[in-house]
């Protein structure tokens, strides 16, 4: 089966999720907000974003990227 552009897009999205899970641009930064370091707030937000992205992926890309038909695995997407 031909790979579609969106398949590569998903791979890119996962790459970005991994790459910025540690906020490298805040390296050495000790600023805090509401008693917690800024980089910790970044972490909390990023994990939330990752969860939403993963949820979207399960609807749009999950079976496509694995080359299976949803009905083949007993669930309609």
């Amino acid at each position: 089966m031909e790979r579609q552009k969106t398949d590569y897009l998903w791979i890119g999205v996962f790459g970005v999720l991994v790459a910025f899970a540690i906020p490298w641009f805040l390296w050495g930064d000790a600023r805090t907000w509401l008693g917690l370091p800024l980089w910790l707030w970044w972490h909390i937000g990023w994990m939330g974003l990752a969860s939403l992205t993963f949820a979207l992926f399960t609807r749009r890309g999950w079976d496509r990227l694995m080359n299976v038909e949803p009905d083949e695995v007993g669930f309609d997407g």
Partner: peptide, 13 residues
Amino acid sequence: DARVLKRSFALWP
């Protein structure tokens, strides 16, 4: 079923 795997995946982070 696959649904179980999908939900777990999204809830993980």
